[in-house]
């Protein structure tokens, strides 16, 4: 039975669950294709944030002497970049999840958000690799772990949902307006500097700190840092605010995605 008309949020989520095998194979395809002909393979997951971190450490840590508190600057920036890159690279790739899979969009029948979800999931191994390097660096700097490090898990789940939400939004909008192809990287670059990545939140003047908190990534990156590097529970109010904003962004984007999905095959 083919239905036309109404859509239902839970029904949509169930549709994704029913297609979990497809999700698995598409994610695997993405990973295999990305690394099959790359000489350094998965090492790129480490080379990228590490080289960025070294340059930032040189500019901000050595030249400009930004204070990173008790934490070594390299750790501060590498932890921020690892989790930021997951967010930013996922969204950049998600922007092309529909337009880059022209054949699947115009010639196959399945919930198209699967394409976006698989691009985001395919970035998780990269993050895991750079997370291992982060732990090794912490060991090198004699930074221990405490139970507070477990905060990374719920925080990362919030980050994934936020990433999915924005990924769905950019992917769907890009079908109709290719401007998004140019806009997304620009937006993400500006966004990075408005998130405490290359500086700690504590170095931001108080009245600007409130403004920065409107950015859901602020709470996420801060929570990861306080759990891992400061060994203490995160600012829960800040994290809760990120959670609420994330939920809102996800729901609105997903509804918008499903609403425009019918037009994908005709317009792309």
């Amino acid at each position: 039975m083919v239905k036309t008309g109404n859509y239902n949020f839970l029904e949509d989520l169930r549709g994704v669950w029913q297609h979990r095998e497809l999700l698995y194979f598409l994610t695997q395809r993405e990973l295999e294709v990305r690394y099959k002909q790359a000489f350094f393979g998965i090492a790129w997951a480490i080379i990228t944030p590490l080289s960025q971190a070294v340059i930032f450490a040189l500019i901000f840590g050595v030249f400009l002497k930004v204070s990173s508190g008790p934490t070594p600057y390299l750790l501060l920036v590498f932890s921020g970049l690892s989790f930021w890159n997951f967010f930013s690279q996922s969204i950049t790739m998600a922007t092309f999840a529909l337009t880059g899979n022209y054949n699947l969009v115009t010639k196959s029948v399945f919930p198209k958000e699967i394409l976006v979800i698989s691009t985001v999931l395919a970035r998780v191994p990269d993050l895991l690799f750079s997370f291992v390097v982060l732990l090794a660096m912490m060991f090198y700097y004699h930074q221990g772990l405490s139970l507070a490090a477990l905060w990374v898990i719920p925080t990362f789940i919030i980050e994934v949902i936020l990433t999915l939400g924005l990924g769905l939004f950019f992917a769907a909008t890009n079908v109709f307006y290719r401007d998004v192809t140019a806009l997304a990287p620009l937006l993400l670059m500006l966004w990075m500097y408005l998130t405490p990545i290359v500086y700690p939140l504590s170095s931001v003047p108080v009245h600007f700190r409130l403004l920065l908190s409107l950015n859901p990534m602020t709470g996420i990156i801060s929570a990861i840092r306080s759990g891992l590097l400061m060994r203490q529970s995160p600012d829960l109010l800040l994290l809760a605010f990120s959670l609420v904003l994330t939920a809102a962004i996800f729901i609105v984007s997903y509804l918008q995605f499903k609403k425009s999905e019918k037009g994908f095959a005709d317009i792309i």
Binding site: F25, L26, R29, E32, V33, Q37, N103, T106, K107, S108
Partner: peptide
Amino acid sequence: ELGAGFHPELTGLENIYL
């Protein structure tokens, strides 16, 4: 549309599953 969804980099067997 035969083969929509085949990926050129993957093997025949991988593509059968995909």
